[in-house]
Design a protein around this nucleic acid. Structure first.
Lengths: 126, 126
DNA sequence: GACTTGTTGCAAAAAATTCGCATTTACTGT
DNA sequence: ACAGTAAATGCGAATTTTTTGCAACAAGTC
């Protein structure tokens, strides 16, 4: 986990490792508040500053979740960036398929992507 | 444009049409502030309330833009939801290809999606 | 171990979003 | 067209979220 930091030229502090670990084990996007709530002894402003750095280095990405307030963060490295959101019950369902493989765009080198599907889950479709 | 509102069971007010038109002509995601700046005589709180309703009815979606602050809104109806973001210069490039056609997920009925590609544009790759 | 620079904590400031309430407006059925 | 009804708006204030300044602290380097 600390390789992410050192490779990006960031100092490897306890606080940063905590944030990374929480994002990693959560396996879903979290808000700054949620991250702060999980680590007992870290200032909220520090969480924001850490997230800023991680965004800058493309270690995390920001996202929003339909029908949920606020901004969420998740690890770029996690292959859990793909989910389907039920527009009725608002539950997230992680999907493992990825239809984006080897997508090419002219005049652009693709290094990553984010995909969200909207629709209705089995329960709500009734 | 007003069909979107009446079909969703929303009253068709001047303010709502203004917001929809701005989102439609902008052809890119806008923040609440940006929308407010474009319509001279509408309260900012009203912009937020309108956006809430439009989200609720799935007429707009929320999104974030890497390296930009805040929450952005864009029309679901617009087929401009797909863009590539350069991680170096942070420019958006709209893409017209859609690799998601007819994607199916088990136990889920897909009605829409959002796709963002990350990478480097021609200029920055050098 | 001392040095240098980047990081953190805290409290305060700024920005973004929501809320309460009086007034106005859009739709419905005459 | 007209009155009635429920919903939408404007305004300011309250709340929530995010950023900032600065002194103390900790990580990486020699």
């Amino acid at each position: 986990m600390d390789k992410l930091l050192t490779q990006a030229g960031l100092k490897c502090t306890k606080q940063r490792l905590d944030v990374l670990n929480i994002l990693n084990t959560a396996n879903k996007p979290l808000t700054a508040e949620e991250i702060h709530a999980e680590v007992s002894d870290i200032a909220l402003s520090t969480v924001y500053r850490i997230l800023d750095k991680l965004l800058e280095k493309n270690i995390v990405i920001k996202t929003t979740i339909p029908k949920s307030d606020g901004v969420y963060y998740e690890l770029t490295a996690n292959e859990h960036k793909h989910f389907a959101i039920c527009l009725a019950c608002h539950k997230l369902k992680y999907i493992d398929i990825c239809p984006i493989h080897n997508t090419t765009v002219s005049d652009f080198t693709v290094t990553g992507h984010k995909l969200e599907l909207y629709g209705y889950c089995k329960e709500c479709i009734k």
